[in-house]
């Protein structure tokens, strides 16, 4: 009985399960590879399969176009500033809500995570209405503010999870030894949540970088990279240029996400 069971474990999953997993991965990843493939096609109007030939020409074309650079720069600025705002506000919120109980704490906690569940279209609509009512013109800063709303949740979630694992006695020991609140944060809490901040920040950055729905509502004439993509779909010429930019975006977002994944592995020794 025992040995039979062990033999089955040793054999691993069945062929059917392996096949299903392979198909699932293919379904998830094949479209991405198609995008990458057509960045190199010689044909510029339709996506014929297989591509008639391969070329690096579109990279040259893409690098020469100022609108791409402008959109890229804008997206990086927005993502950078939204992430920065989220890091500061998300950490402060997490610090306030992690430990001491107070009246209404559970409700406030829920209100903090709720925006991530809210459809982007509602967030966008609400922001637009709010911005107009407050007398602001949609523009660069309203995009940043819009992105900060969901970036904040990501940072908050990462930081609060780490803070909850932080023993109260570490903070108490620091205060006991003469450190005030700020010194304790700087020397004890920050080193412990640093990787959580890095991971949360990179996820937030990646989310902001490819966000389109909220951006459509909160932008004026600004064209972030995702909006540039969207507009590009209606132009029939130089189609592979879109793919080239897509490849760049994949690379730009993949690196931080892999890093974030690596930094928050469950087997890591916090802070070491």
């Amino acid at each position: 009985m025992r040995s039979e069971r062990r033999r089955r474990d040793w054999n691993g999953p069945s062929t059917g399960a392996k096949l299903a997993a392979a198909l699932g991965l293919l379904f998830l990843h094949a479209p991405v590879w198609v995008i990458v493939l057509y960045a190199f096609t010689t044909e510029d109007r339709t996506y014929r399969f297989p591509p008639p030939g391969l070329t690096l020409r579109w990279f040259e074309v893409a690098f020469a176009r100022p609108d791409i650079w402008a959109a890229m720069k804008l997206s990086l600025q927005v993502a950078g500033l939204a992430t920065l705002a989220a890091l500061v506000l998300g950490t402060l919120a997490a610090l306030a809500l992690a430990k001491r109980p107070f009246r209404g704490k559970d409700q406030i906690t829920l209100l903090f995570v709720l925006p991530i569940a809210l459809p982007g279209i509602l967030t966008g609509l609400a922001l637009l209405t709010g911005i107009r009512k407050a007398g602001f013109e949609p523009g660069f800063w309203t995009i940043v503010a819009g992105h900060a709303t969901f970036c904040l949740v990501i940072v908050y979630n990462n930081v609060i999870a780490r803070l909850r694992r932080l023993p109260d006695s570490w903070v108490e020991a620091s205060m006991d030894l003469g450190a005030d609140g700020f010194q304790t944060f700087r020397h004890v809490v920050l080193p412990q949540i640093a990787t959580a901040l890095l991971a949360g920040g990179m996820l937030a950055f990646a989310l902001s970088f490819d966000e389109i729905i909220v951006t459509l509502f909160t932008a004026g004439h600004e064209e972030t990279l995702p909006i540039w993509f969207y507009n590009e779909l209606f132009r029939p010429r130089e189609r592979p240029v879109t793919n080239v930019v897509a490849v760049i975006v994949i690379l730009v977002t993949l690196v931080p996400i892999l890093l974030a994944y690596w930094l928050t592995r469950p087997d890591e020794h916090a802070g070491s």
Partner: peptide, 27 residues
């Protein structure tokens, strides 16, 4: 007043000497 905690509450990201010197550092 200083405290020795039940779980010792040593800071894991600091060396033993840095832990001991912490009270001086923040002063």
């Amino acid at each position: 007043v200083n405290t020795v905690f039940q779980d010792y509450a040593l800071f894991p990201h600091m060396s033993v000497a840095e832990n001991v010197a912490y009270g001086l550092k923040v002063r």
